[in-house]
């Protein structure tokens, strides 16, 4: 009897181990092939991969991703601060005044925003920003990216804020600190690494978002655009368009862009790991 139970235990462990290995194989394979395919394209194209525009479909040269790269950087640089500010202040409010109807509504809405399909966000922003302006624009992309990443940043912030023990609040109040001072002088310093992690993860999210950009930024690839009110492009959008084409050089560009995106994500990820290291409360 005991032998049989022992055997069942072993079999169970084997099954768990095998399924777990299968579960993490895709991501490892994905990283390896994306880097291998992408880096070989980038190396072959040389520095011009970052400075020139995408090639014509049938041309021999690899071309570059400059419009999408600049577009992605601009979109992130604009959307990230807006997202962080709104998310941080909203989460502070919900944490400080949890029973206020407005706070309850914010919490509920943030949770529902997290579950709406990003393509729906893209459609709404298309109606609200693109149609009135008469053109696709960086601005529309920024609005869409902000909406998509807001609930994400909000959830991070409120998790960190809630993890602060009540004793800190009591201590702060007992030395006559105001609520405002408690938040800025006590709470924010306590969660500063958490804030850093949130900023980094939100940045990764914004950099990689595709669906929200489909009907908002346009696909301006004939030159580098730095205009906020004019159309632009983004790396994920470029990849999305080019993997669906049959042209070989388009697919190569897509791999190069994907490798770049993945490297950016990996760097951000490692940075967050370094930021959390040694967080002790």
């Amino acid at each position: 009897m005991y032998k049989w139970r022992k055997l069942k235990d072993r079999i169970f462990f084997a099954v768990i181990l095998i399924l777990s290995i299968i579960a993490i194989t895709p991501v490892i394979h994905l990283i390896v092939v994306t880097l291998a395919n992408g880096l070989s394209v980038i190396i072959r194209a040389g520095p011009s991969f970052f400075t020139s525009i995408p090639p014509a479909p049938t041309s021999k040269d690899v071309g570059g991703i400059a419009p999408s790269l600049v577009g992605s950087l601009m979109l992130t640089a604009l959307a990230l601060p807006i997202t962080i500010v709104i998310a941080l202040f909203s989460s502070i409010m919900v944490n400080e005044f949890p029973r206020n109807p407005l706070s309850i509504a914010v919490d509920v809405v943030a949770k529902s925003l997290a579950s709406i399909p990003t393509i729906a966000v893209s459609m709404v922003v298309y109606l609200l920003v693109v149609v009135p302006m008469g053109t696709f624009s960086t601005l529309a992309g920024v609005v869409a990216l902000t909406i998509v990443s807001l609930p994400y940043a909000y959830t991070y912030f409120s998790t960190y804020l809630r993890s602060i023990p009540e004793t800190y609040r009591e201590a702060a109040y007992s030395i006559a600190m105001s609520r405002w001072k408690t938040v800025t002088r006590v709470f924010l310093p306590i969660i500063r690494r958490g804030v850093l992690v949130t900023v980094l993860m939100t940045m990764a999210r914004i950099l990689g978002e595709t669906a929200a950009l489909l009907f908002t930024v346009g696909r301006y690839r004939i030159g580098v655009s730095t205009s906020i009110l004019g159309p632009t492009d983004a790396l994920p959008l470029l990849i999305f368009d080019y993997i669906l084409t049959p042209y070989r050089n388009f697919q190569e560009i897509a791999w190069g862009a994907a490798a770049l995106l993945l490297i950016a994500y990996l760097i951000i990820f490692i940075a967050t790991k370094l930021a959390v290291r040694g967080v002790k409360l």
């Binding site: 895709p26 991501v27 394979h29 994905l30 092939v33 994306t34 993860m201 990764a204 999210r205 950099l207 990689g208 978002e209 595709t210 994920p236 990849i239 999305f240 993997i243 897509a254 791999w255 994907a258 995106l261 993945l262 994500y265 990820f269």
Partner: peptide, 10 residues
Amino acid sequence: GVPTIIYAMW
């Protein structure tokens, strides 16, 4: 956290 576009491509 890997961007879904990279999953899609892979």
